[in-house]
């Protein structure tokens, strides 16, 4: 039974390009559908692996634009239902914050160590 992240075997067959491989999926990092499909062919089987290998979702918008599409491509390539594919892990800060603002803690506001 196929589960998320399993089935990592290498078939030995060549990568098969598709017509819409040049569509841009991650606009921030300029990553195309073909590159994502190739990463999956290269062995990436989880959302984290694709993200770390290729960088979709690592640009300024932090995956707000591409997440749904990358999940969809992984689902289609692995044959798993979309519901089994998690999204990108959210991390602080939720929106970019300057170093000065982030470091500006005061005792009264519960900051400092």
């Amino acid at each position: 039974m196929k589960t998320y992240g399993s089935d990592r075997g290498f078939s030995g067959e060549a990568f098969v390009p598709k017509e819409d491989d040049d569509v841009i999926i991650c606009r921030c990092e300029e990553i195309t559908r073909g590159e994502i499909r190739k990463a999956i062919y290269d062995g990436m089987r989880t959302i984290s692996e694709i993200r770390r290998y290729l960088r979709p979702g690592m640009g300024p918008c932090q995956g707000m634009t591409c997440e749904r599409n990358v999940r969809g491509i992984l689902a289609r390539e692995t044959g798993l239902p979309l519901s089994q594919i998690p999204g990108y892990r959210p991390r602080s800060p939720q929106r970019p914050v300057t170093l000065a603002e982030l470091g500006n803690e005061s005792e009264e506001e519960g900051g400092g160590v």
């Binding site: 606009r27 921030c28 640009g59 300024p60 918008c61 707000m64 634009t65």
Partner: peptide, 10 residues
Amino acid sequence: VFCAIGRCTD
């Protein structure tokens, strides 16, 4: 302009 709602950073 892409999303025009402050999400995409284009």
